[in-house]
Design a protein around this nucleic acid. Structure first.
Lengths: 408, 408
DNA sequence: ACTCTTTTATAATTTTTTTTAAAAGTATTC
DNA sequence: GAATACTTTTAAAAAAAATTATAAAAGAGT
């Protein structure tokens, strides 16, 4: 059986019995992917198929090379079970995390291990055929470098900033040169299925699958870097809205008397809270002679960017901390709106600013305490991501597997 | 077979085959409830069960009296099909719409027809054993008046304002005298299962099942009366949040320099936009001698309440329209936040103010045009409910049937 | 009148489950 | 420390359930 069989849903002109069998296989693979090695008995309970049938399905999957016999496990008071697990080398997933200035690539095996990882700096995102070509080249060279045959790749998962319509595979903000839709164009060129989504949403999927949102049903994931992104897990599912435009948290109104935003509106959250603003404010202060660790950067002709600011904060730089605190007051205000509307159980802060840890969490918490109805907000936990810079990349893997193994 | 069989999910200590059969029955009943009369062939396509099996399941349901043979239908080029439909008198649902000052009661049959309907005015909601008793009395007398045996009632659906945890059957804001949870207490007293939810969410369910949200996946329903409620359909499902506190739209921040809200925060949307404020402002103006149709009300010693204001607006009262327009500007601001965050395909305005029709829609639309990013908001349709005062009551029916017929 | 459809009923076959039994342990008792 | 009782896991046989295939019925269109 071809590896791709998992991917082929909604098969047409195929007997019903074939579809049903596929679904049964998928249930088993799904369970093993999400829960690790299991005995026949455990699978039976999880997938609600009878034991003789599960045994024969597992046999089939073993004969295809998709499952491996891991030998006997621990007994819980009777005969010791035979454990089975996914053959992690049976298939692979390519993860592509597109950022404004860098590109992260990875290849995952079915145990979610990154068997290849590359960070390409100074890979500036631009809407050109050239960018598209070199993106394809990078992926192709990764594939040939690994020497894994193309059929072994289940899909390519892509994370990209801006407005994305995942259902249609369209990226509206970036790479609109791909006229038939980015997913389609890349898929055709690579000969591998491509799955696309917005960076904040992809991060949310990463957190749900591998981070702090595991087993949570209503979680908001903030991507705090130069802008503000929001990915939402609601009722256990990623929320994308009608056109995939959901999550424009950066452009909600916070200060009606505030500054003009680049989006044309006044007082958007992003005019008050964003990495870009933070850096800008600090640069201006440094120019005016503000004493701060970051002033040394300038002397040494190093660039004061967001990474540098976060570093300074972690080193205890008083001025930078103050600036962040101010920002967090506004961010808290915005978050309160989200919490009042959606009553999530957890808010996860990710992106570059998440590296600041308690230096973000504490002031945001204070702001929330001030502005939120405590009955509602007290049910919401505020934490920093522990996947950090990896969350989008891990999210691409999560997105692919979620799509492939979904049961609908 | 007892009518209640549909309701009994997660049966324990029962053979798997029995559960599966129940699920098959439920699929068929579900299809007939949501789509009306159908032939065996149509059911086969919809529920994905083979034709011989569907035929025998339908036979069973007929013999239980749950289904009726509607005779032959139109041919589409071959033998004319035999149509089957739900026996609408096989079971009934009680709907209870609790408002601050009135109580709406109804009994629905399985064709969603209100076979009984009563509006009880001056039935002020208060947190007392007395209220609970007279609520039960009203329901009991309705039941005995109809002469339908208790077993025929599938469930009681209740809509109530305030914070509600539907999963647990708890009403936090009102009727907390019911110590074991309102749903439980009423259920025990009535001897019928009780389903509880917040009024705005219940309205959203009503709109999704019977109103303008049919076939839509992402819809926001506003309950604009004395306060502001919000019910959200996201990814086709009602969103309640972790504790059922989602939808506190009235308490999102709109004006940081604004007035103190009764919730303790400053500048909440409800301090700027709500029926209560509208009425208050108009009353004050009337006292100061403002020329308006509503001034006559005062002369005639009639009360200036929200209903009167809406009436005046519909009669073209310039001052009242102006006041509403002002309110709508703020409401639009708030809605923009929602639309940016959730990218819904439709926003439905319900509640007493929805009676004003275009007098709300137009100014809110204008405000949205001003404050929203048009790429996102242009995908969102803004309409008034056509269920109007019935939406919560219809929603209780929808809630019960959704719960009973869900396939999980 | 004939062919072509669609719907329904019946028979045959396949699939799946339940039942039963065997295998391989653990815990306990004497 | 072996024998026994009790578990859990797996395998095989028997029974049940569900589907596919086939045929018949009932009508539409030409």
């Amino acid at each position: 059986m071809r590896p791709q069989f998992l991917y082929e849903k909604n098969l047409q002109g195929v007997a019903n019995s074939v579809k049903r069998k596929q679904e049964q296989y998928r249930k088993i693979v799904r369970h093993l992917y999400y829960n690790g090695a299991a005995s026949i008995a455990e699978i039976v309970k999880a997938v609600k198929i009878s034991q003789p049938l599960v045994a024969s399905l597992v046999d089939d999957l073993m004969s295809y090379g998709m499952l491996l016999d891991k030998g006997v496990g621990e007994s819980i008071g009777g005969r010791r079970p035979n454990l089975f697990c996914l053959n992690s080398e049976y298939q692979y997933v390519i993860g592509v995390d597109i950022n404004l200035h860098t590109l992260n690539l990875a290849v995952f095996d079915l145990s979610n291990k990154q068997i290849f990882r590359e960070e390409i700096k100074y890979f500036d995102l631009e809407n050109s055929e050239d960018y598209l070509n070199s993106l394809v080249d990078k992926i192709e060279s990764m594939i040939s470098q690994l020497g894994i045959s193309r059929e072994k790749f289940l899909a390519v998962g892509i994370s990209i900033p801006g407005l994305v319509d995942a259902k249609q595979g369209l990226s509206h903000t970036h790479l609109s040169v791909a006229e038939n839709g980015l997913a389609r164009v890349l898929g055709d060129r690579l000969g591998i299925n491509v799955l696309l989504d917005n960076d904040a949403r992809t991060m949310a999927l990463g957190e749900k699958a591998f981070g702090k949102a595991i087993d949570k049903e209503n979680v908001l994931c903030l991507n705090l870097s130069n802008g503000i992104g929001l990915g939402m897990i609601l009722n256990g599912e990623l929320h994308s809205g009608k056109n995939g435009f959901a999550g424009e948290f950066g452009h909600i109104l916070i200060d009606p008397e505030g500054k003009l935003c680049y989006c044309g509106k006044i007082g958007c959250l992003e005019t008050l809270t964003s990495g870009k603003i933070l850096v800008k404010n600090i640069r201006e202060a440094v120019d005016k002679g503000q004493p701060t660790l970051l002033a040394n950067y300038k002397k040494e002709n190093k660039k004061i960017d967001l990474r540098a600011v976060v570093e300074a904060i972690l080193q205890g730089d008083q001025f930078a901390i103050d600036q962040l605190n101010q920002m967090c007051e506004y961010l808290g205000k915005g978050l309160v709106t989200l919490i009042h509307l959606l009553n999530p159980e957890m808010v996860i802060i990710g992106g570059k600013i998440a590296h600041a840890g308690k230096f973000v969490i504490d002031p945001v918490t204070m702001s929330m305490n001030k502005y939120a109805m405590s009955r509602i907000s007290s049910e919401t936990e505020l934490v920093c991501s522990d996947l950090l810079d990896d969350s989008a990349l891990m999210g691409t893997m999560a997105n692919v597997m979620r799509s492939v193994l979904s049961l609908d």
